[in-house]
Every structure is written in structure tokens, then in C-alpha cells.
Design a protein around this nucleic acid. Structure first.
Length: 422
DNA sequence: AAGCAGAGGTAAGGTCTC
DNA sequence: CCAAGAGACCTTACCTCT
């Protein structure tokens, strides 16, 4: 038996509890922009969805030569406003702009009306990604079991990290918060709880720059009073359906008979709803995962007609295929299921796909297969969006080679009234 | 010839998230 | 005529094989 040289970081006699953290960067996109352009602090700023034209306009010098710092243009002062921002949406807005009712996913035109003096900035995705990598690597050095959840969010398993048990995780959360601020100058909010589900809700309790600790026994007091929409996975549709059934809070959801929920939401969703309302979730923090699909899609500047705008559509289509192919090649993946997506002028969506008998990352193959998909979809309405997707991905080089028994693709007949157009 | 059950794949649509 | 883009996952239906 060797002598104890230093005290263990956590209470030695206490049982080790599962402690999961959810970390959310505060107003990430806007904060990154403000770091770069501090002169905008306190002003109404809307950050646009990266429409190419907005980007061009803001970075173009007045004489049309070369790139420069973005102009700070109030949205109302855009020349040919509609041409530039007509179909774009706001990614995020600063608090000063939010006061006017401007918010995420709102159309730019609407934002222009609500807050004409707001400054428009294009999203600088490279810069956002740079800060994303920065804060994530900072976390990973302290707590290696970390799961990506988009650019500004992660889950962290505190259970076996030194300090992860102290004060329910508060000590480690503080350390991570401080480290991120030291490295990036950005603040974040952290929730620590027995599982991911509760941690995600907890991280919202004390924003911005806050820490919130939730224990099993807090369920009744702190979770059940919340609206069901606070549950990650209950969106507008399910929220509305629950409301129509007279269920508003998580507590009311928890009070329902599981079978009653299953009868209304299906086996999987119904059972899941009951589980999460009781705060139950044993999903692990997954440190790495493989992509399932890659896609490219674009909304046109104006609605396009399959016949009249055939040439333009064809160019866009080819370009999308080439971009997906380039993405696959750059990231080292091949895929087997080729699909298209289109959105009509009335916003209805149609998708078609076809599974090949061999994996590919080749633009021409993708283009050819996607073209077949396109023939199976009605093209009598104008289109506003076109997308190309490649699914059933495998890492390049690790592909089970060739099909044992190539099966003829089961393809539904194209509508006889629709002609293959491009 | 018809029927059933279960597994696994394919296809289409939908929901949800950031 | 306000309403992006990328990705994951679910449900339902249908097909094939055993």
C-alpha cells in the first residue's frame, strides 16, 4: 500500500455522480463581429445570412476595386435594397436591434422596415469558425470528453474530470468559463446537470455569462414549471399539438399517461416525451461522429421557371453538384444516395433520391443521377430553391467495394405530364 | 396460390436544431 | 408576396428476402 501523496480533487468518500455540462456561447455571431468592429458596440446591427450579394456590396470599395473593410450601411440605405437583401434572412441581431422586434431567421426586408437604421453586416463564417475552434480546443484541454453541437455549443462530460464533482460542477464550470474568456474575450453560459437533456435546459437559466447547477431533485421546482418548448426536440409543431391537447408545461406533460401520449404521438415520440418530461436521459456525450449526408442548396434571386429559365437552372444545378462533389473530395467521403430537393414558389417542398450501386464523389455522376431524380418531380410551378444532396456516406477508401447483387432501383414513374427539362 | 412475420433497404415527406 | 442553409433524425409506406 503506497502513501497518499496528495488529496484527491474531489470528495473522496462521495459517490461519483454523472455530471454533464452544456455550454452555450453568448450571442456568438454578434459577439465575434463586435470584437472586430468595436465601434459598433451599442448600435443596432443585423447580421445577414451571407447572401452573396450583401457580401459583395459590403466588401466592394466604392470604385469597384478590390476588397476592403465592410461599409457600415444602414439597411434602409441599401441601393436597390430588394435586389440585395430581398430573399435573405437575419442570422442574428444585437440587442439594440432586437428592441425593434428584429430577430433570428427574420427576412431582411421585414427587418429593414422594423429597424431601418440598423447596420447590416455579412456573416464572416471564417472568423466565426476560427473562434469556434478556439473555444472548443480550450475546453478540450481541460475536459476531453466533449461533444460538438454546432458552432457555438458543446456538451461536456464532467463526471471524471478533476473538479467536475465539486459544488455539483460549479468549480469546473467556472474554470472553463474563465479560460474561454482569457483566450477569446467571449463569454458563455454553462448548465451542469445529471444528463444532457437537463444540462441543455440549465444553460439557459442564467444567461449571459452564467452558471447554473441542476440536480435530480430540482426537477419538480425548476423544470416542471417550464414550457414544453424548452425541451430540446419539441419544436413548433409538437408544441402546438401539445397546446391543443391542453398541455403547456413540462409538469403537465409528465402527468400524462405514457400510453395516452403514444396514442397521439406514436410509439417512439410518445414514449420519449414522457421520459424527457421526467428528466430521464442516458444518452452519452459522444466525442466523434461521422457525417451522414452532405448537401448544397440555394435560393434563387428570383423564382425560376423550368422551361423559360432552363439554361439558368441548368447552370445552377451543375454548380450545386460540383460544389457537393468538391465538399466530398475535400473531406474525404464518398456517397451512394443522390438526392435533389426543390422548393416551389408556394414554398411546398419536393425531394427525390436514388441509390446507386457504387459509391461516388464524382461531380458528373452526381449530376447525372440527380438529373434522373429531377425527371421524377413535377415541374409545372416556378421554383425558388434547388438543392443537391449525397447521403449514405462512407470514408473514402473504406468502402465495401461493389455490390454483391446490384438491384434495379425502384423508381416511381414520373408524372406523364411533366417533361424532363434540364 | 396465398399468407404471414421479421429484417433490412429504399423512398418521400416532415420536424427540429443552430 | 416576409420566410437561408446544412444536417440529423423520425414516420410511413413499400419492396425484397428469408
Amino acid at each position: 500500500m503506497e502513501a497518499v501523496t496528495s488529496p484527491p480533487p474531489d470528495e473522496p468518500s462521495a459517490p461519483r455522480l454523472r455530471r454533464i455540462a452544456h455550454l452555450d456561447m453568448d450571442a456568438f455571431f454578434a459577439s465575434v463581429e463586435l470584437l472586430r468592429y468595436p465601434q459598433l458596440k451599442g448600435l443596432a446591427v443585423v447580421i445577414g445570412g451571407g447572401r452573396r450579394k450583401v457580401d459583395e456590396l459590403l466588401h466592394q470599395s466604392p470604385d469597384g476595386q478590390g476588397l476592403r473593410e465592410p461599409h457600415f450601411i444602414p439597411v434602409a440605405d441599401f441601393p436597390l435594397l430588394k435586389d440585395y437583401v430581398g430573399r435573405g434572412v437575419i442570422t442574428t441581431a444585437t440587442y439594440a436591434a432586437r428592441q425593434f422586434g428584429v430577430g433570428s431567421a427574420m427576412g431582411m426586408m421585414k427587418a429593414a422596415k422594423l429597424c431601418p437604421h440598423a447596420i447590416v453586416l455579412p456573416v464572416d463564417f471564417d472568423e466565426v469558425r476560427r473562434f469556434s475552434r478556439l473555444f472548443k480546443s480550450t475546453i478540450a484541454e481541460i475536459a476531453p470528453v466533449m461533444q460538438d453541437r454546432g458552432v457555438d455549443e458543446v456538451y461536456i462530460d464532467f463526471t471524471d474530470v478533476p473538479g467536475g464533482q465539486r459544488e455539483g460542477g460549479r468549480v469546473l464550470a467556472r474554470l472553463i468559463q474563465k479560460s474561454i474568456f482569457d483566450v477569446t474575450g467571449l463569454t458563455c453560459s454553462i448548465g451542469v446537470a445529471p444528463n444532457r437533456l437537463l444540462a441543455k435546459m440549465a444553460s439557459e437559466f442564467n444567461k449571459p455569462n452564467g452558471i447554473s447547477i441542476v440536480h435530480e431533485e430540482d426537477l419538480k421546482d425548476r423544470i416542471w414549471p417550464l414550457n414544453v418548448r424548452k425541451i430540446n426536440g419539441i419544436g413548433p409543431k409538437a408544441g402546438e399539438k401539445l397546446a391543443a391537447l391542453g398541455i403547456t408545461t413540462i409538469g403537465e406533460l409528465a402527468a400524462q399517461d405514457p400510453q395516452w401520449l403514444i396514442a397521439r404521438f406514436g410509439q417512439s415520440s410518445g414514449a420519449w416525451m414522457h421520459r424527457v418530461a421526467w428528466g430521464r436521459d442516458d444518452s452519452p456525450v459522444v466525442t466523434e461522429s461521422e457525417p451522414v449526408s452532405m448537401s448544397r442548396e440555394t435560393t434563387f434571386d428570383r423564382d425560376l421557371h423550368a422551361v423559360r429559365d432552363k439554361a439558368e437552372l441548368g447552370r445552377i444545378f451543375t454548380d450545386l453538384c460540383e460544389r457537393v462533389a468538391a465538399d466530398l473530395q475535400r473531406k474525404g467521403y464518398v456517397g451512394k444516395t443522390i438526392g435533389i430537393k426543390l422548393r416551389y414558389d408556394d414554398f411546398r417542398i419536393a425531394t427525390r433520391d436514388q441509390t446507386l450501386d457504387r459509391y461516388t464523389q464524382d461531380a458528373a455522376t452526381i449530376r447525372r443521377t440527380a438529373g434522373l431524380c429531377l425527371k421524377r418531380v413535377p415541374l409545372d410551378r416556378k421554383l425558388r430553391l434547388l438543392g443537391v444532396r449525397v447521403g449514405t456516406l462512407e470514408r473514402e477508401g473504406e468502402v465495401p467495394d461493389g455490390p454483391p447483387e446490384p438491384r434495379a432501383p425502384r423508381v416511381r414513374e414520373a408524372d406523364p405530364h411533366t417533361r424532363p427539362l434540364f
